[in-house]
Design a binder for these strands. Sequence first.
DNA 1: CTAACCGTATTATATATATAATACGGTTAA
DNA 2: TTAACCGTATTATATATATAATACGGTTAG
Lengths: 123, 123
Amino acid sequence: MISFEHFKMEDGSPIYSQIIQYIKRGIVAGTIKDQDEIPSRRVLSSLLGVNPNTVQKAYRILEDENLIESRSGAKSYMTVREAQIALVRTQLMEGNTKALIHAMKQMGISKEDALVLVEKFWD
Amino acid sequence: MISFEHFKMEDGSPIYSQIIQYIKRGIVAGTIKDQDEIPSRRVLSSLLGVNPNTVQKAYRILEDENLIESRSGAKSYMTVREAQIALVRTQLMEGNTKALIHAMKQMGISKEDALVLVEKFWD
DNA sequence: CTAACCGTATTATATATATAATACGGTTAA
DNA sequence: TTAACCGTATTATATATATAATACGGTTAG
């Protein structure tokens, strides 16, 4: 069963996006694996304190990306192939890194200073 | 006159937020200074291809933060004090850096690997 | 002075996001 | 079998975001 123990609502981004992001990062980290059972819509919505429809929206999108498999009436499971893991890893790593670099460049921060900042705030 | 030459619409975040972010980064970079004239709502909306009301919302919020001063009928200007610059710089640097670190940690990436990624994609 | 701007405000419409309340039929374990 | 779940769907309401069209009076340069 996938754990949402470390999930925290933070950004101003939509909740369903944060759920998707959390799961994808878990896939990259290896804490979420192929055929892992995922919490039901009702259970996760209760756990996160959000509406079941919000969880359903996240799950539906992940299903559209073939990362979740659902059968009406039964539990839902992750369906994560190796090729998908590599793809998600690349997308998330590049996306997050490039977002930081773009911000730093717009602020006129040098690469060296940016690296120092990451070092400084890591812990 | 503030330049929006390097403004690019990218995120999924609200347009008015992106405008605010762009201006704040310019303040940190020093390309936007105290008493600089800012484009009128109509001019900037036309330049960015968005609705005047969207620009107005961004400007109004910056005005609430005392970073813009407007007089009905006249041009608007930046009002940026040294203390504000330091504050905005700290907020943006910390915010962006911590966002990257949070993402990397959730993906199980080590500090060293994260630094290598920033190095790799900088140019 | 006056025309061309300017900030500001209002009303309407549309979409995205989130919640709430319900309902239906499928699946599964006791 | 049946009760407790499950996925799925629908309807309604509310807020945020974005656009569109329009209007009012203030400011300023020619």
